[in-house]
Every structure is written in C-alpha cells, then in structure tokens.
Amino acid sequence: MSYCTMNTNHNTEILIIGGGIAGCIAAISLSETYNVTLIDKLEEPVNKVGESLAPATQRVFNALGLSLNDDHYENLFLNNLGMQSYWGSDQLQILDHLRNPDGLSKSVDRKKLGLFLREKALEKGVKGFWGYRLFSSDYSNQKWKVICKKDNPKNRTSITIDTDFLIDATGRNSHFARSLGIKRTHFDSLISCWLTVPNTSKNTMSSIISDEFGWWYSAVLPENKRVISYQTDSDIFDKKVFKNFTSFSQLLRKNSTINKLVEHHTDGVDFHGVVSANSTKLNMVVGQQWLALGDAALSFDPLSSQGIFNAMANAMQVSELLKTSQLSDLTDPEKMNQFSKQYTSQIESVWAHYVKHKNLFYGAETRWNNSIFWKRRLENAFVL
C-alpha cells in the first residue's frame, strides 16, 4: 500500500478557511484588491437543507457582476413566488414577492451554487485548495502561519500558508476560532431533520406549517425535487424518530398537508437526517489579524429565512472593511483595535436585528403556549 506525502509552502495576503457561500463571496470581492487564497475541507460542496435565496441576495450578485443564469449551471435555481403558511392560525396565509423591488426569491440547488461560486472565485484569480483541513496555526512576526492537511488517510499532502490576514468561514463549527480556545454561546437546541422527494406539484411557493412540537418547511427545488424538513428541539422526541425515513415517516403522517407531498413517492425519498439549526453566537468574532465570517460568527434559526443572505451581506461588509484598510496597518495594535471595534459593532447590529425579528415570528404563534417547544420560545426570548 502506497501513500502520497508532499509538503508545499504558499504565501498570500488573505487566507479564507472555508469555501462555502460566505467564504467564496468574500474571496470574489476581495480579489479586486488583494491576493486571496481559499481552502476547504471538502473536495466539492454538498447539498444542504438551506436552499432559499431571499430577493435581496440579488443585490450582492449584481455588485459582484455575477449572474445565476449561467449556461454551465443548468437548473441552478427556480423562481419562487413566495411563502404560504399555517402559522398562528388554521387559516392559510400567503406572502408573495411579486411587488418586491429585488424580484422573486429563488430556490437553489445548494451543491450547484457552491460549485458556481468556487468557479467564479477561481476565475477572479483566487487560489483554491480543496480537500484540506485546518491542522494548526501560529501567529508570529505579524503573520499567521497555517498548516492544512489533505483530509484523506491515503494522501498526507500538507500545505503551509503564510498570510497577513485570516478569515474563519468554517460555518457553525468555527474551526479556526475554536482552535484558539474561543467558545460559542448556544441560545437554544433547535435541530432540523430533512429529506428530499420527487416533486409533482405545480405550486412553486414554499410552505411553513407550525404544530405543537415545532414546525414543518417545504420548498420545490430544481430538477423536480422537493425538500421537506421538520424543526424541533433536540430533547423533545426520542432520537430514534430521526434515525431513518421509516421512523421519521410516523411523524410525517401526523401532518396531512406534509404527508400528501410524500405518501406517493416513498421509493424516491432521499433521507438526509439531522443537522443543527439553533441560534448561536461566537463569543469573540475578531482578533489580531483575523475575523470570523458568516455562520462562523453567527448562526441563525432557519425560520428567519435569512441565513444565506446574512452570510453574503456579512461577506460584503468584511470585504469593504478590508478594502479600506491597509493590511500592514493592522499589525499596529491601535489600528487593529479600531478595526475590531468596527467589525464587532457590525456583528452586534446584525444580531440585534435578528433577535428582534426571531422573537416576533415565534411570538406570532400562540396556539400551543403550554407546549414545551413554544413555552421555551416565549419564556427564553433572548437579547444581546
């Protein structure tokens, strides 16, 4: 048995660890001003439950000169007319985007979107290393030295990267910040169990339906697929309920509206299981010549439907901050301190806005005030 072993050195002005949506948007924007390197533990993106692009995301794509109507990415998205819901009432409510100045929302293929953004980053001159995991980091001589290793036991290739500034865009796990000993505050224990099924409905609106123990979400995806997810707290149901589709289907059958979307397509179900969906906040989002971006800084309850937009908007804010800064200036403690205060203030503002609206959304559902799930949302409405 042979193994590949190789060590390479690389220098860059800005290193972004995490090649997801936030990392790629930041890289594309920053590439106009700086030499940028992207690194990600995944060889290629994977599908995720969060697939909705709010109309306002179009502003970001326009600012970067990007168009989702790319001939190489057929079926990347579907236009979504809006949201239909049973929330706070047994009466169907509809919120459309027909008069939204930013246009319609979009249901996207997350894997294709990830590939699209990686490709656009490389076209802008960003250097990309895929399939490498953060191994260690060290700050000395006003630079970060980062070692990343191939995430493959048969391939021990490693890269040593010297960078003037580092961005942690590794999602909720915030791998880099965590390696520095920085903790996250978890404000609830929301999880999401999701699956995809063939779609036969002509209605492309998304759906949200609350029940006694959480809420359901459904949306049509490109290539005649539909995503269905259930959001609840991790301790309300026995974990066996979310182990496989057979056990999860018992929960599905309790909601007639959702069950109709699945009952005739059980042979085509792709069960993805459980992912974290709780609200979390990194306790320190910026330090000496580094910062946390997107979900690595703040992660949102999917009820907000703003996770992807906020990641993209945050990436653009970071880009503007760094474009107006000289990286050499940030080696000065006083100037780095000013930079840190400015970025922390931006993050706190986003968090305050999110908390306000999250509490309003959950507060609008009053039919199950004695249910543990809803009592927690009323009693534990959190503030900064």
Rank of each mutant, 00 (worst) to 15 (best):
M1A: 08
Y3N: 14
Y3K: 15
C4Q: 13
C4Y: 15
C4R: 14
M6K: 01
N9A: 11
H10V: 13
I16C: 09
I16W: 03
G18F: 08
G19V: 10
I21K: 04
A22L: 02
A22P: 04
C24A: 03
A26K: 13
T33P: 02
Y34R: 10
Y34Q: 06
Y34G: 07
L42S: 15
V46W: 10
S52Y: 08
S52V: 12
S52P: 03
S52H: 08
L53R: 04
L53G: 00
L53Q: 00
A54M: 02
P55F: 00
T57D: 00
R59A: 01
F61M: 06
G65V: 15
S67R: 12
D71W: 11
D71E: 13
H72K: 03
Y73P: 00
E74D: 01
E74G: 00
F77Y: 11
L81D: 15
Y86D: 01
W87R: 06
Q93I: 05
L95A: 10
H97G: 08
N100G: 10
P101H: 09
D102R: 00
D102G: 05
K106W: 08
K111S: 13
K111H: 09
K112C: 07
F116K: 02
E119H: 13
E123F: 11
G125N: 00
K127G: 12
G128K: 06
R133W: 07
R133Q: 15
S137K: 01
D138Y: 05
W144L: 03
W144N: 06
I147C: 14
P153L: 01
T157L: 10
T157C: 12
T160G: 05
T160S: 10
T160D: 12
T160Y: 05
I167M: 03
D168C: 00
T170P: 06
N173M: 09
H175S: 15
S179A: 09
S179C: 06
G181A: 09
G181L: 12
I182H: 11
K183G: 05
R184C: 06
R184D: 03
H186D: 09
S192Y: 02
C193Q: 08
L195P: 04
T196Q: 02
T200D: 14
T200N: 09
N203P: 01
M205W: 11
S206M: 04
S206Q: 08
I209G: 14
E212D: 02
W215K: 06
P222E: 05
I228N: 09
I228D: 10
T232M: 11
T232E: 10
D235R: 01
I236V: 15
D238T: 07
V241Y: 08
S247W: 01
Q250T: 07
L251T: 11
L252W: 07
K254Y: 09
K260P: 12
K260I: 14
L261R: 14
H264N: 13
H265R: 10
T266E: 08
V269T: 10
G273P: 14
V275A: 03
N278P: 06
V286W: 07
V286A: 06
V286P: 01
Q288R: 12
G294Q: 03
D295I: 00
A296I: 04
F300A: 06
P302M: 03
I308K: 00
N314L: 00
S319P: 02
S319I: 03
Q326R: 11
P333L: 02
N337M: 14
T344C: 04
S345C: 02
S345P: 05
S349R: 13
V350F: 10
H353C: 13
Y354N: 04
H357D: 14
L360P: 02
Y362N: 02
G363W: 12
F373V: 04
V383D: 15
